[in-house]
């Protein structure tokens, strides 16, 4: 089956085989974007979190047929070294990752959170960020999420001024 989607800003048509294949494997193996991780395959750990039309989705539990015509954003498309997303910038400034494996999922979930709640409280963070990190980087992540909210607000303010 052929699926057309916009992946990290680029329109692509891919032959996905079984239309119910989890989006995760299409992203990782067909589109060769390895930043989205396999952790459990049961939508339990959140390592595979990415954005579909700007909403957080656990891609191991999302049939690829549902992305037809939609916009998919992975960690590779969130930002890059030259132009990091505020969440990535905050993660760098707080030196969050340890082993690093779960981090893309957390950053994608955080990006989705900041889209909905630009200035999240600790309670908002506790409710929405429910991925699993084994190294225990939650303490720095929380600081990074608050910092990302500030960075994003600064960018928004600057953009407003420019207009």
């Amino acid at each position: 089956m052929e699926i057309s989607l916009t992946i990290n800003g680029m329109l692509k048509t891919v032959d996905v085989g079984d239309e119910n294949t989890p989006l995760l494997w299409i992203v990782r193996d067909l589109l060769n974007l390895k930043g989205t991780k396999f952790g459990c395959g049961k939508a339990a750990c959140g390592a595979c979190t990415l954005l579909v039309d700007d909403e957080a989705v656990r891609s191991c539990s999302y049939p690829v047929k549902f992305v037809e015509g939609k916009k998919v954003t992975t960690i590779e498309g969130l930002g890059d070294r030259e132009n990091p997303h505020p969440v990535q910038q905050a993660w760098i400034e707080e030196i969050v990752p340890q082993c690093g494996y779960c981090q893309p999922g957390f950053m994608m979930a955080t990006a989705a959170l900041l889209n909905k709640v630009p200035n999240p409280t600790d309670e908002d963070i506790d409710n929405n960020i429910i991925n699993v990190c084994r190294c225990g980087t939650y303490y720095r992540m929380r600081k990074a999420i608050h910092r990302a909210a500030k960075l994003q607000a600064e960018i928004n303010t600057n953009e407003t001024k420019e207009i």
Partner: peptide, 29 residues
């Protein structure tokens, strides 16, 4: 994982029911 009703019966703002649950049963997960 502490999922709860949220403001619109659909979970929390960014992590909603539909972060994991789609319109069909998922036989893989």
């Amino acid at each position: 994982f502490g999922m709860a009703r949220g403001d619109d019966d659909n979970g929390f703002e960014a992590t909603s029911c539909n972060t994991c649950h789609q319109s069909i049963n998922n036989t893989n997960s």
